[in-house]
Design a protein around this nucleic acid. Structure first.
Lengths: 277, 277
DNA sequence: CAAAACAGTTAAATTTTTTAACTGTTAATG
DNA sequence: CATTAACAGTTAAAAAATTTAACTGTTTTG
């Protein structure tokens, strides 16, 4: 009768995930509440909760006083990995408000995303009309995309550019049109700057006093004065942009530049492969 | 036999959502593929696809040549709302790579998130140990949180602060401990700065040449020279931070400040209510 | 102390899903 | 150019999941 995690069918896994989702955000879950959420009858809901208890013993227990199942956070989740973006998409069903600041500079036209995604899925290339810094009015290009890259500022597409014969990043919001698909160029495998990992070292800005430094060390999880981050060479430029790391900006107010570059030599990699300058 | 959207049970809705998810990202979906994804038998999978066709006529059609169902993008989705964060959480099952840049300054300890979420859910207040700019070593406070706010830089909690007797923003990553819950203070309703909407006006940086301006206008969806954004007064500061809008920074390279403030008078609201300075 | 609000239970009826053995179509293969 | 492989689609009986309807038991509330 006790089933293994792997014996469950897809439907059952979805339900178990929903159970854990409720438990994580609410801390407790009533049977009637679950029956309403899953639109199921009471006997079946009871069965599901029993099944959950067998699969993940000790995670939940009925509190006779509140008449609700209460969660034991020291037992790990089996089905649900919590994240804030998940709260965003489910906050309407919980009574927990969640608000994402809208930022127009990051607009991501979903029809472009869709057509590029399908190009990746089919291992093809695609015609795009792209507005770059050098050609703001736009130019037709053919690219073989391999990965969507979400930086803190915008969404990019990492792709082989058939025009410039190299791997480049394309900002999704600057693609105004997508065209027909055709045979691919170079693929993920040969994107060296993508596969090269560098160590980026960050230090608190020395202009901060020691108490403020501690705060920054907390924010950045600094260990022994330096925070080391493994960074794809292809994305190095965006880390400079994010943390405002260019040495010529170090004159700035440390409020706008809480960390500075710990290994200047890494800047050599910024231009080595023409990623984006 | 033809069922209405509302007649479907929870399980069925989840499945339909999965069907639309596959269709959106892949553009096509095979019956055998769907059977594997849903871990269902072939006859049942056929039934589900038929049911989908009845619910959303014209959305999919079998291509006899590829022997796969192909999507008609001009017919709207009924169950699935696409987003890039959704691709992130499902990209392992599609052959579409997706990579999110890690940014240590945004760390969000999920145990803190969890305990605060449950406090909101239960309409209570909670003790936290908070490291602010003025008190980097941390101080115990009691807050009544009402909303999670995701800005482009980090996750905040909007809350009534029992110590300073006002609504404040707390950076999740700067909460080092959460304590016991108790009775709430002021709630969402009385947070004026949260409910006050302002119009923020953005213009392309005049130092840009006209071609570059066009590009920025595309990025920001500028209409007739100005982009207007409705902004909660409580979040105004973060827009200044995001777009680097402080007038004293206007000397900067327009690469780092693509847009400037269109309505200087709005700055009065930055300090009016002590949100964060 | 009675009522309300829950969780939990049972057994028969109903619905969904699987199993196993089929047909039909298209593209690729020798 | 016939054969095969790879798919979608079908059927009917068997099995499994779910609902319905009528219950019991416990704790808090008024």
């Amino acid at each position: 009768m006790i089933k293994d995690y792997n014996d469950l069918k897809w439907d059952a896994i979805q339900r178990m995930e929903e159970v854990e989702r409720c438990l994580f955000w609410q801390g407790s879950l009533g049977r009637t509440e679950l029956a309403l959420r899953l639109r199921m009858s009471n006997p079946q809901t009871t069965a599901i909760l029993k099944q959950y208890q067998q699969l993940n013993p000790g995670k939940i227990g009925l509190n006779n006083s509140s008449k609700r199942y209460e969660v034991n956070d020291s037992v790990k989740n089996l089905f649900y990995t919590p994240s804030l973006s998940d709260l965003d998409s489910h906050s309407d069903t919980f009574e927990i408000d969640s608000y994402a600041m809208s930022a127009p500079s990051r607009r991501t036209p979903m029809d472009v995303v869709r057509n590029v995604a399908r190009t990746i899925y089919q291992n093809k290339s695609i015609d795009i009309f792209y507005h770059s810094h050098n050609e703001p009015n736009g130019k037709r290009r053919r690219i073989t995309p391999h990965t969507f890259v979400t930086t803190t500022r915008r969404t990019h597409i990492r792709a082989w550019c058939h025009e410039s014969k190299g791997f480049r990043d394309f900002i999704v919001g600057r693609i105004s049109e997508t065209g027909t698909q055709s045979e691919p160029g170079q693929t993920l495998m040969s994107d060296e700057a993508w596969h090269t990992l560098l160590i980026l070292k960050l230090k608190p800005n020395p202009k901060l006093d020691s108490a403020q430094k501690k705060l920054i060390e907390m924010d950045f999880e600094v260990q022994e004065g330096v925070r080391e981050i493994k960074v794809k060479q292809a994305l190095l430029w965006y880390y400079f942009e994010l943390y405002n790391l260019w040495p010529e900006h170090q004159i700035q107010d440390p409020k706008h530049q809480p960390v500075i570059l710990g290994n200047i030599d890494i800047m050599a990699f910024l231009n080595k492969v023409p990623t984006k300058k």
